[in-house]
């Protein structure tokens, strides 16, 4: 059976698409699935850096599509997880270097071999976006609890519908419980009420994400962090598991305390 092809998109830039792709993909790989991450942001390559694989790139997506190299040769295996791969994009080309049809064929080929094909979409709703969604059967919409990001998410949800990618899942990123509590940030219910799509995850605003990106290690590998747990929960929900939304219930204080005394899951390594 062909694997699931999920595009991660948002409309607005800077809301965390790439981080989400990296972490959800890594989370699915931790759950034992065979996963490939596809960087569809041609010209603005970044997924490799978030994954810590930037030094291993030899070939890229555009070279594969143009027939200059075999798909297999362009895939980079993750350092710790041998069931997690990255197909990097080209850095010195432009979005129109590939067509939606070519992307559709490429993703179809990947779906033959992988359980999950996660496609990191560029910001915007132009050519690059259409490339990114071309082969996708499902979508994850990433937004932050801000007026601008939610508005753009709404637009993208409409476009996905027009392109026949149905029932996208929603990830609300960078929520700050303290600001929600004092009424200075849209809360989860507000965003769902407005966008009216299924919630798949809530990711708290967590400084550890920046640290993780600095190191090139997806934060989901560190289950002691709030964001890491949130991403693992998203992966489990995508797998069909019912996971209650406890992301906000647990205070950061408890986590800090836990980390201090070293309780909680140890960093998971691949076996």
């Amino acid at each position: 059976m062909a694997g699931r092809a999920i595009v991660v998109t948002s409309g607005k830039g800077g809301v965390g698409k790439t981080t989400t792709t990296a972490n959800v993909g890594t989370g699915l790989a931790l759950a034992g699935r065979k996963v490939v991450l596809v960087d569809a942001d041609i010209g603005l390559r970044n997924l490799d850096v978030v994954m810590g694989l930037e030094n291993r790139i030899v070939y890229d997506l555009v070279e594969v599509i143009e027939g200059h190299c075999e798909l297999r040769k362009a895939l980079i295996r993750h350092k710790q997880l041998d069931n997690l791969y990255l197909l990097p994009t080209a850095q010195t080309r432009e979005k129109d270097a590939v067509t939606p049809e070519q992307m559709r064929d490429l993703v179809a080929e990947l779906r033959e071999e992988f359980d999950y094909v996660l496609i990191d979409s560029p910001a915007g709703i132009e050519h690059g976006f259409r490339n990114a969604i071309a082969g996708a059967t499902e979508a994850l919409i990433v937004t932050t609890p801000e007026v601008t990001a939610v508005r753009d998410a709404d637009r993208v949800i409409g476009m996905l519908e027009a392109y026949d990618v149905k029932d996208p899942g929603l990830i609300i990123n960078r929520i700050r419980p303290d600001m929600v509590r004092r009424g200075d940030m849209l809360d989860i219910d507000d965003v769902i009420d407005i966008l009216r799509i299924d919630l798949v995850g809530i990711v708290p605003d967590d400084q550890d994400i920046i640290v993780a990106t600095n190191r090139g290690e997806p934060i989901v590998l560190d289950q002691r962090t709030r964001a890491g747990q949130a991403y693992q929960n998203i992966a489990r929900r995508i797998e069909g598991e019912e996971v209650p939304f406890r992301e906000l219930a647990e205070s950061s204080f408890v986590n800090r305390l836990r980390r201090l005394v070293g309780i909680g899951n140890k960093r998971r390594k691949a076996n």
């Binding site: 007026v147 004092r182 009424g183 407005i194």
Partner: peptide, 13 residues
């Protein structure tokens, strides 16, 4: 609350 304002503005937009 600014979140109320945000929600109302979003709805209209």
């Amino acid at each position: 609350e600014s979140s109320r304002t945000a929600k109302e503005r979003l709805r209209l937009v």
